[in-house]
């Protein structure tokens, strides 16, 4: 039996509510490093919330969240979760996130968007950061748009800048939150191809929330089906989509693809 390394993401009984709405109702998950995981499920099932918690944008209400063996949150006596700021930022450094609506900084051009964090977080010199930023812009096929302002870019280009911006910090984990759903249909392909290329390198752990079932099936090592705030089904895509055991996933996939 091969030795299994400790998972880079480890969740136990993770819970989160916004107001009166329970979005996550106890999520358990282990993700080994290098795995590409697609997260599917009906809207409102908690997929995006999971990503926000993994990026440490919001605190969980209860449960354990461990990234690369480190747990940023500690429960206070009152029950509220608190993070030590230094640890929060150290753990955040291992994770990158790409958002549905890009969230590019509108007052900075593409290059400046990508350079900002390497300079201020990693402390790179301007020259080094610039070189690195241009390298990542090149990887997403936008080296010629380095000087363009976000408003001058198409949706697909914006999203690729956002991916370069997240990659430039060289995180161990990348989170993609419905990164194609704000794009015009003809621009989706380019972004998905970029994700496929990243997944094939196996150097980064990827969690991809997506509505593209074919993409989830072809590019992921593993698919999580979310329903009502829990992982309802979990397995390799071939099993989940085709083995006839995973009834709920099959029905959802049929409903969204119209087969």
């Amino acid at each position: 039996m091969p030795e299994t390394p400790p998972p880079i993401i480890r969740l136990r009984g993770l819970r989160k509510s916004y107001g009166n709405v329970q979005v996550l109702r106890g999520v358990d998950l282990d993700v080994p490093h290098g795995q590409t995981v697609s997260v599917i499920g009906p809207s409102g099932s908690g997929k995006s919330t999971l990503l926000r918690l993994l990026m440490l944008l919001d605190a969980p209400d209860a449960g354990e969240l461990e990234i690369d063996g480190e747990s940023p949150w500690t429960a206070e006596p009152g029950g509220r979760m608190r993070a030590d700021n230094a640890r929060l930022r150290r753990v955040r450094g291992k994770v990158g996130m790409v958002f549905q609506h890009f969230n590019l900084f509108p007052h900075m051009n593409a290059l400046q968007n990508v350079m900002e964090a390497p300079v201020s977080v990693l402390g790179l010199k301007a020259g080094e950061a610039r070189e690195r930023a241009l390298d990542y812009l090149d990887q997403v096929g936008l080296a010629d748009k380095a000087e363009a302002m976000p408003a001058q870019l198409s949706g697909g280009q914006k999203q690729r800048v956002a991916i370069a911006r997240a990659l430039a910090l060289q995180p161990r984990i990348m989170l993609f939150d419905e990164v194609t759903s704000a794009l015009d249909p003809e621009l989706v392909g380019g972004v998905l191809a970029l994700l496929r290329g990243l997944a094939q390198r196996r150097t980064i752990t990827m969690l991809i929330v997506t509505h593209h079932m074919r993409f989830a099936e072809r590019c992921a090592d593993r698919v999580l089906f979310f329903e009502n705030g829990v992982i309802a089904e979990d397995g390799p895509p071939a099993e989940l989509f085709h083995d006839g055991v995973h009834e709920r996933t099959r029905r959802f996939v049929e409903a969204v693809t119209g087969d």
Binding site: R52, M55, L56, L57, R89, R92, G93, V95, G96, M97, F99, H101, N103, L104, F105, P106, H107, E116, A117, S120, V121, A162, R165, A166, L169
Partner: peptide
């Protein structure tokens, strides 16, 4: 989303305010 993006890029609070939020 701008606050989220700044947090996801691990920018510190002052840096976020000064470089990202205030200019906008």
């Amino acid at each position: 989303g701008q606050w989220d993006a700044a947090a996801a890029l691990n920018l510190g609070p002052l840096r976020t305010l000064w470089r990202i939020i205030v200019p906008q």
